[in-house]
Amino acid sequence: MYVAVKGGETAIANAHRLLADRRRGDRNLPAITIEQLIEQLGLGVDRVMAEASLFDRSLAALALKQSRGDMIEAIFLLRAYRTTLPRFGTSKPVETGSMQVERRVSATYKDLPGGQLLGPTFDYTHRLLDPSLLEDGMVDQAVERPGTPDHVMRVSDILDGEGLIEPDGEMPEDHVAGDLTREPMEFPMQRDLRLQALARGDEGFLLALAYSTQRGYGRTHPFVGEIRMGLVEVELEVPELGFTVSLGEIRVTECQMVNQFKGSAKAPPQFTRGYGLVFGQSERKAMAMSLVDRALRADEFGEDRLAPAQDEEFVISHCDNVQATGFVEHLKLPHYVDFQAELDLVRRMRARHAAEMNRDIDKEAAE
């Protein structure tokens, strides 16, 4: 139960002014620009876009600036803006097989058709602070970005050619993709809705669940079949025109995990898949998503659901960081009436407890 707090409007306005002052910081330093955030803190911008479910680098950078770098606050801001946008259609599924690849690695095959492409990554750095970045840290010259072929074979295609991996499932022609943002959640979920929830789920939460599956809390023995990052084309089929229109290109990260499956009465021994796809360059999130996706498919393969990462309702109900933040942070709001009620209850319970203790003492003394 909440109660109105009188006279709080002025205090709130002052709090907003103080927040704006702290956001701006030292006036002797130039204000950070949206372009600087996009170009120099791109991975943070990518995470905001991914977990807000809105691909717009400028708006994501604006949210990041407005939130003073608080990722979840920025995600909340961008999601709130997203709800104001009109829906005018549904794009066709992006064809990641035709991705303009900027990075592509596999832990399963050393020699790949198309080769391994390391791209921009922290994987091979020494994790040592670079003092040169205390200054401008200008790179001598821009690094040339080599072009890639339009189609780079997937690792899963190699395994599929030998019949060693489960088929890349096809949806029925009459299947209508669900929309988690417009439909209430119901369990059990179809996989397309589940993947939507994971794609916008909190990276830290999914990372912890993914880690748990590797420590025995789930039946997984994963290999990174392939991680690829690059540009894919987004297309919209316009019925009035009778053909597909290209809306532009977006950068995404895709991960396919390969997991061993011993087989069942219905399926032979083979490899199974876990899948992750997120906006921007976000490999940790895509990997965690694919590991959790595979764990949540336990029922499909007749596996016992024993671990938290295999419990669909637990995972999906708690992976949304905006919802989780709202529920935790609402504790900061006034709960005066609730607390006074509990305070009165605890006092009465203590008085009753003391009376019972005194009776026991008197009884022992009498005996």
Rank of each mutant, 00 (worst) to 15 (best):
A324G: 04
E51K: 11
S58W: 00
F327I: 09
A366W: 05
M189K: 02
G119C: 07
L306T: 15
R103G: 01
A309I: 13
R273Q: 09
A63I: 02
A267V: 13
V232I: 14
Q260W: 08
A324P: 00
T84D: 11
A15N: 12
G97Q: 10
E95C: 05
L333F: 07
T253L: 11
T90H: 02
L59K: 07
I227N: 02
M138G: 03
I75N: 01
V155Q: 01
D168H: 12
L62P: 02
E233L: 08
Q310F: 11
G7H: 04
G178W: 12
A142K: 13
V224S: 02
L54H: 00
R182I: 08
L164Q: 06
M229V: 15
V94K: 01
A142Y: 10
A15M: 15
L112W: 12
D168R: 14
T90D: 05
P131L: 07
R200S: 09
L134R: 15
R154A: 12
H353Y: 08
F76G: 00
M257E: 02
D21N: 12
R182V: 13
T213R: 01
A60E: 00
F223V: 04
D360T: 07
G89T: 04
V48W: 05
S264R: 05
D111E: 10
A74C: 08
Q310K: 14
A265M: 05
D21T: 15
Q100V: 05
R17H: 10
L29M: 04
S317T: 15
I227Y: 04
R57Q: 09
D362Y: 08
S67L: 02
E35V: 03
D338G: 10
A52K: 12
E203G: 07
H16A: 14
S156W: 02
A13M: 13
D111K: 11
G242S: 12
M289L: 05
L195Q: 15
R347Y: 07
A4C: 12
V176D: 06
H330T: 15
L64G: 06
F339D: 11
P113G: 14
R191Y: 11
L41M: 10
E173W: 05
Q100Y: 06
G7M: 00
A324H: 07
Y2Q: 11
R352T: 13
G216M: 13
L277Y: 03
D140T: 05
D140E: 05
R145D: 15
D360I: 06
R87E: 14
D192L: 03
F271D: 01
F314G: 04
Y109D: 03
E39Q: 15
L277T: 04
D168G: 11
K332D: 10
C255S: 11
E303N: 05
P268I: 07
Q196Y: 02
H353R: 14
L277R: 01
Q214I: 04
H126G: 07
P184N: 10
V48L: 03
D202Y: 01
F327P: 01
E367M: 12
G326S: 08
A265K: 14
I316G: 00
L206F: 03
A107C: 09
D26M: 14
R200P: 00
G248I: 08
E240K: 06
V152F: 10
R251Y: 07
E329R: 13
G225P: 00
V278E: 01
L19P: 06
P269L: 08
V292Y: 00
A50P: 04
Y124Q: 03
D360C: 09
R305D: 04
